[in-house]
Write a protein that binds this DNA or RNA. Structure first.
Lengths: 106, 106
DNA sequence: TATATTTGCAACTGAACGGTTGCGTAAATA
DNA sequence: TATTTACGCAACCGTTCAGTTGCAAATATA
């Protein structure tokens, strides 16, 4: 079972949940009201989001408020930045030559 | 079959392929040399990347060079920006009240 | 105390995923 | 021309995924 941020945001419902609870903590029932799936399905998504530390729980009586933990999302940013760095230097001919040599393991 | 950028980058091998061909176009065989999977498996990944327009093909004789199309990656950036916008305004109490009202559909 | 509400957990289902092997085809090469 | 090389496509396999239904536990309420 792979559990990383990229797999977490691969699902459109989970992306929507993330945006939904980004501004304020919410309970599974409250979240489920915004979607056409059962409360249990939402709970499963929350479990996955919790497992990759994108979300934290806070118990209040019988209710559990789920709130976002913004730290892990930076991993996406990090990968994007790495990509951009390579992408933006792709027209540098010297870089190309060096990478060709590297890729051909010479 | 869902085919969007987020699903494309969910797989670690595909992320590696993206970074690999970001600087220069490569053939499936050349790409496969960098991984412990078969050439056919790489081709499957390239097919997925092509389907969500992250990658373009360029035929050269019997070789096909796969090169990155940077445009679609911006969709990830766009989503991240949307998230950041909400995330960074989460401590604004007025915003919270407004969002509470909105979420409760009042 | 009996009942309703909120939740997590388990079992199940059909679809999708990531990988493999095998094969056909087109281009390069001997 | 015969052979090798590069590739895509199809079939298959085991695993994961997203969803469902059903149920038990804990808290709130009548």
């Amino acid at each position: 079972m792979r559990r990383d941020v990229f797999q977490a945001i691969a699902d459109p419902t989970r992306r929507a949940i993330i945006l939904l609870i980004a501004s304020q903590a919410m309970t599974p029932n409250a979240i489920a009201e915004h979607f056409d799936i059962t409360r249990q399905a939402v709970s499963k998504h929350l479990k996955i989001l919790t497992e990759c530390q994108l979300v934290k729980q806070e118990q209040a009586g019988r209710e559990i408020f789920y709130q976002l933990d913004g730290a892990k999302i930076q991993e996406i940013d990090k990968w994007l930045e790495e990509f951009k760095k390579i992408w933006e230097s792709r027209f540098n001919e010297l870089d190309k030559v060096l990478l060709t040599l590297k890729n051909n393991k010479l």
